[in-house]
Design a protein around this nucleic acid. Structure first.
Lengths: 129, 129
DNA sequence: ACGTTTTGTGAAACACGGCTAACTTTTAGA
DNA sequence: TCTAAAAGTTAGCCGTGTTTCACAAAACGT
């Protein structure tokens, strides 16, 4: 089963949180994304079945496959948020709206766009609130 | 009720088709968007309730409110498709992916982005297949 | 070590947006 | 004009992704 927008968001947030705090629990993801823990529970089950995450007793972590997707999403997130901020959009709005843009493009198209716009400023996940 | 991505797509396609052929019927929208006429029928009922379209005996047309949204969507569509094509993305892929990007931004953010990237090339709806 | 609080899960419901199938209504050709 | 095709509607279903509510299980303070 292919990854949907929401699945990509979950992977990305696990990535960001794990860089920030090491161990990531479902409840952390729920708070980060502003959804209920039941939603996370369900989503994690799906993502585990698809091989994107593995769930320990009390933590979730990305598989290689999940990590690859998460890194791509984070890279795009930073790109679009940075672009919007440079355009004069407030950090808060840029973050919200960039969150959606990052799911619209294929990796190939994204790289072409990034090459054209020449933004090489990809930072690590700890940059973001 | 706020407009969703699919609602915006319906409005945009009514706009494009009306510029192209004058009168727009549900079936035209269905073919343009690649959905069934049943889906269009349902969507039109919702959009009419929200004041975005009006349905005649055998045609659909945009209200002022609907037209405003449709024009914005079309403007963004052209912008993003053009941007992607300039970046080297094929016309087909650019059109597909631009279709989604156009729904991600507020009008304010979009205008800021457009101002920064300096693309003034907004064409009329008849430009697109 | 016990009880409370925190965290995770499961069931049932909902909204959304699509589909098919069956039906009605309109249009248009012979 | 009458019938067949085209267009539109309605009802019911499905998948996705939420939610709430109730419960289970783990963690933690004293």
């Amino acid at each position: 089963m292919a990854l949907r927008e929401s699945g990509e968001d979950y992977l990305e947030s696990i990535y960001v949180l794990s860089e920030r705090q090491g161990i990531v629990r479902s409840i952390d993801v729920a708070e980060y994304l502003g959804v209920t823990k039941a939603s996370v529970s369900k989503a994690m089950a799906t993502l585990e079945n698809s091989g994107y995450v593995e769930m320990g007793k009390r933590d979730v972590h990305l598989t290689e496959r999940g990590l690859e997707v998460a890194r791509q999403m984070w890279k795009r997130h930073c790109f679009f948020v940075g672009l919007l901020e440079d355009a004069g959009v407030s950090a808060e709005v840029a973050s919200q709206e960039g969150c959606h843009m990052e799911h619209c493009l294929s990796e190939a198209s994204f790289e072409k766009l990034r090459a054209m716009l020449g933004r090489e400023d990809v930072a690590g996940p700890t940059t973001e609130a």
